[in-house]
Design a binder for these strands. Structure first.
Lengths: 224, 224
DNA sequence: CCAAAAGTGTTATGTTTACACCCATGT
DNA sequence: ACATGGGTGTAAACATAACACTTTTGG
């Protein structure tokens, strides 16, 4: 390759994270408010540019932490967004990532030197975002629906024990549909995705509910 | 973003194509021989660097045509290879693509200003390739197995009519397994992937075989 | 005993697998 | 008539989908 070909110059790599949580049956995504141009004042997906000495996954995690304080997230790369004019300053290729976290465990910082706020938004009412982030987020929501059916991506939502009723509600929220309770339980128990802890939890006036944990041995079989 | 941050400089985007064909039951991939450093004299997957004014898919097609003469291929992006030291000259992120072509229809040019030869290699006997291309190719072979089961990627192998026996042999070659003939036919006919043309072809001493074409309406349901 | 949610089982339907024989042709 | 490969059907196993009643607890 002719390294000095001007057509090779000035391409940057954007790492863009769609971080989801489920909060009382509402699926939410983490957005930050930009303080700099371009798109100053717009809400945006947290992310930034790849360094030339790091892996893309590491860069995505670094940017997420720098912009929101969130760390210890498993990120899953899912697509490239490459429209030539998707960034006004220079050519930027976006590599999009998805992560899921437990809102209660995440300590989100709202202000950095590039952001004035960060907050969780119901995915059903997303404002106009910076760049092509509305498109990226829509793709992420679709991909999330696939991921919960083929991977254990939701385990980060339940770092501790959980009941199948809680997990059921999360599946219904994300897939935006209702799932038969009995069949859901059967599939979950028959898949090797969750493990019965033989412990129960008591809520007032209700039959004690069995507690489960996620199986650490990942299986890639489709659950539904 | 601080555009002048030195950590953002000198990242290039590599577009790498694994182009497959099936030749009498043998799955082959198209390789080119490099005439320049680095990896001078090594066989390599055809590809090159993204221009800053083109989409990655267009860049992959352009490079494929420049290096091999092959055009009119549908390419499917499948993975990013980002090891920091995967390229000796500067940081290069590889975006890997897969395509399938009919060997008979492809007019391959063997010499360009950067290549001294191009040829089809049986995927069961691949030499040591330039860069991390052995790893990229292995990933492409795995991905090809998935793609033939979920998409109509093989239609480019059969631009005209074909018999189910021919298609069957290609599936067995790529998946490197045997598939029950009756069940294969049932699945193919029941999926909306192929359409009966109501025409037949005669071979000496054999019952005439029905001819099929690929359905242009793509379906994404898994075939097997 | 009542409310609230947890827990469970069966039947029907559809899908996948395994498997063997007849058919149309050219020689 | 026979050799060659083309074409088909059925039964068993398995997976999925639909559906309703009983259990445990707190008040």
């Amino acid at each position: 390759m002719r390294v000095n070909n001007p057509l090779y110059k000035n391409i940057g790599i954007h790492l863009v994270n769609s971080i989801f949580t489920v909060d009382n049956g509402v699926v939410k995504v983490l957005l930050i408010k930009r303080t700099n141009e371009p798109y100053k004042g717009y809400w945006a997906l947290p992310g930034g540019c790849l360094y030339n000495n790091e892996l893309v996954l590491d860069g995505a995690k670094r940017e997420l932490k720098e912009k929101t304080g969130v760390s210890n997230v498993e990120l899953s790369m899912y697509k490239i967004f490459d429209r030539v004019d998707r960034s006004p300053l220079k050519r930027m290729i976006a590599i999009a990532f998805i992560g899921v976290i437990d809102k209660k465990k995440a300590s989100i910082i709202s202000q950095t030197n590039k952001t004035s706020a960060s907050d969780w938004f119901d995915i059903k009412s997303i404002p106009e975002l910076a760049y092509d982030y509305n498109e990226i987020l829509n793709g992420a929501i679709d991909r999330l629906k696939e991921l919960i059916q083929t991977t254990d991506i939701l385990k980060s939502l339940f770092p501790e024990v959980f009941t199948l009723a809680e997990l059921h509600q999360v599946y219904e929220s994300i897939l935006n549909t209702s799932i038969d309770r009995r069949n859901f339980r059967k599939k979950m128990v028959n898949s090797n995705l969750v493990i019965d802890t033989n412990k129960t939890v008591n809520y007032k006036g209700r039959k004690p509910a069995k507690l489960y944990i996620f199986n650490n041995k990942v299986n890639n079989k489709s659950i539904f």
